[in-house]
Nucleic acid binder design. Structure first.
Lengths: 212, 212, 212, 212
DNA sequence: CATGAATGAGTATTCATTCAT
DNA sequence: CATGAATGAATACTCATTCAT
């Protein structure tokens, strides 16, 4: 898959390799992921993307109508994936603390294992002057799901009544920030980070976060 | 007919020049603030900025050399302001809870009162593909200051020992997210938001956040 | 309405593109030759060049990256040509006088037959504030070749020992000046000019230049 | 005179130094000479010139209407000077050989002593696409004078009948080329160069140029 | 479907020149 | 006369997008 997408500086005219029709879309997506991660959405050009490909300029427009559209597809892809993982993780939780911890762990682990996707998202929070939600439609959707779960938990008395919107926002915000923090270091420890965030949320600072 | 001759044929040649000299810089800054807030740094062009002004293209370059430079001036300005407010607020705190609450309150209030600045910052987190720190030098500096205060508090035993980096990140993340959340609504309530965030941090969900 | 969207609204969208691909480069070169001849390198703009063409702005950059580069291509082209002609002419000379006369004749004839190239070179001696050698790399190379031939002739005793550098410079200078002189008139006579210059060089004024 | 013209990076607002009214023109001329020599006519901007001055932008236009005009004034100045020197030198000649040698010596010496003027002229031969004669009005005038002297010499039988136009052109061409040649080296020897050129012109190569 | 040359609107920036002070 | 901020036309170059092959 790597071999396919890397531009080999050949005049790329064999008409064999490129004929792997269905995979052209993937080649573009893969190239775009890298380019967006490196240059950010605003800095990336369609040319940058196809240049990382064996394809020709025009071919791009057979699969996407826009730079916008590739970006969307890209975030959709990983967003969907992450959302599914999160959803699954939450289903297995027996109590709220497990629910939170599983969420954080899934989230941190996902980006720890897909650093390029992390950089893609990271470089492009807040892009486009707010026309598009900072976090992409999937993150929004993911947060909405979580909020529903939280509201359900409140109704069931698993956690005290609270402003679910703020609570969800807080959970998300902590996730983003701590993710940034741990992705900067060398020894990325999703486990530890998840436990930290969970304890903080369940019992607060006074709860002696590390104090088990 | 000389090659080097530039034609001039002015169009907009009224007494505009007589306008308060020093205020041109402000006019540009003000226009830039709006434009960046609306279009984001990447989407904004120098032309967009001067177009919101009575000034001519070239005049921009009498005050700034770059789009970059106006942006910097803008974030510096508000960043410095907010940082000073935060620093002052923290100094007056008697205990850690007050420290946290004052910080949140100051932060939320500042943006509630300067919504355009909020949008400016909001539209430009993560701009430029990561070349420039997502939060601008001032926010970074502000967070570093807060972290020092937190570490001091830990040493003094005011709060349990903890990973100060993660804790600071978490506080910042919650601030960002909740700010986003409240800035979307109509009835912005910095007080309530600050109290919510503070309780969450001090005692966690189980602490009965709303439990006054 | 998306910020990144560029509007297109073409205007000049006929079958122009169908035109002989390879000939676009030539079209640009031809236009550039004329423009440089008329306006000089410094006075000419890339826009001036493409304006003399049916092509669009961007097309220029598909073939050349610079004004510099077209100019180089242009002088290279004719420089190489002239240099080859000169070299060939000298090879056939049996004695030094023939050597000189053949050189002058070739030189004068070449520009008499390519007046546009003459104007191109003429308008651009000394361009760019000396950054680029006044006479272009080919003329320099051509003079260096001639100098080697002259030094050889000295060694062989065909002509008296002399400062070859000054001698070559003098030959070149006479060529330039007389070329300018004859290109201004109506009845251009390369033969006569070559004979004049040759006699002057061989026997000096006292030699009775016109004296056949 | 140097102190006056060098920009001292002060905000230059004393209003004392600049009031030396008559000398402002000179200051501009001196600055322009340097700038044109360094950047060439095309590359130089009016701003470059005034920047080397203690004067303000607008002041330039109190003395000259154009970049063109300063350049003209500059070449006029030195052209006039050189022309006078040449004319004087020729008057003292007793025979044609002295006439030629005096001319060359004066010419080479003048530029050897005014290298900045040399670079000014050198960088700007052929500027402006032929709109302005390559050599400036003064050089043209100087050559016309010389031509008249040559024609007079022919009538008087001092030198053989010849095409005076070509002869003058040749003399000028040799002067330019050899000047270039000697100005490149370290040990500039106007005397030797003048003798070389003179012998070449009087007796040609076969005359044994160096051979006395 | 693939190709890639052609297109031209758009952007940042410069600079000669004016003119209110 | 001197000043220098203001002006805006002009330039080089980019890049999303089209379309003939």
């Amino acid at each position: 898959m790597n071999i396919e997408t890397r531009n080999t500086t050949s005049t790329k005219r064999d008409g064999k390799r490129a004929s792997n029709r269905a995979s052209n879309r993937d080649a573009i997506l893969q190239a775009a992921r890298t380019v967006f991660a490196e240059l950010g959405y605003g800095g990336a050009t369609v040319r940058d993307i196809i240049r990382r490909t064996t394809l020709a300029t025009g071919t791009f427009y057979n699969y996407f109508t826009n730079k916008e559209e590739v970006f969307e597809a890209l975030t959709q892809e990983s967003g969907e994936e992450l959302r599914a993982l999160l959803s699954a993780a939450r289903q297995e939780a027996d109590n709220f603390e497990q629910f939170i911890e599983a969420s954080y762990l899934t989230y941190f682990s996902y980006y720890a294992e897909n650093p390029e996707t992390y950089h893609l998202v990271r470089s492009n929070r807040g892009r486009d002057g707010g026309n598009i939600n900072m976090r992409g439609p999937q993150v929004t959707a993911g947060l909405a799901e979580m909020r529903q779960d939280i509201e359900r938990a409140m109704k069931l008395g698993m956690i005290p009544q609270n402003d679910a919107a703020l609570l969800t926002a807080a959970i998300g915000g902590v996730a983003f920030s701590i993710l940034d923090e741990i992705m900067q270091g060398d020894k990325i420890d999703p486990q530890g980070a998840a436990r930290f965030a969970t304890k903080l949320f369940m019992r607060g600072i006074d709860g002696g976060i590390d104090g088990a």
